[in-house]
């Protein structure tokens, strides 16, 4: 399991909670070639990112290989208040995963 790959900022703005996430991940497409060996670098990408608030999934992202390296994700949802916890977790195509819980400020 990967460690410390997720950075989360969650802030209340008006009546919405704005979540910004950065994940550290290579996001290999499987189309790129290794310059030295000429062999294709196998695909390695995040397939799914799940964002939970109070046990409810507020956003589930299904990603393909065309999401940039070290992906950024931002979204907004209502019904949250300061001090609530949100949980972000991801799974990639090799079965690796990580999750992080953050407090809304």
């Amino acid at each position: 399991m990967a460690k410390n790959t997720i950075k989360v900022r969650a802030k209340i703005k008006g009546d919405e909670c704005v979540v910004k996430t950065l994940i550290k991940h290579p996001m290999e497409t499987g189309l790129r070639k290794d310059k030295k060996t000429g062999k294709k670098i196998p695909a390695h990408f995040i397939k799914e990112v799940v964002c939970e608030h109070k046990g409810e999934k507020v956003c589930v992202a299904n990603w393909g290989v065309a999401v940039s390296k070290n992906p950024y994700l931002s979204f907004r949802f209502g019904g949250a208040s300061k001090g609530d916890q949100i949980k972000i977790s991801w799974v990639d195509n090799k079965g690796d995963s990580d999750s992080k819980t953050a407090t809304i400020s």
Partner: peptide, 19 residues
């Protein structure tokens, strides 16, 4: 590129970076 399933409380807004 990406498909986001949003919950009932989630606003119609996503921002990301793509190739």
């Amino acid at each position: 590129v990406a498909h986001f399933e949003l919950g009932p409380r989630t606003a119609g807004y996503v921002s990301t970076r793509i190739k």
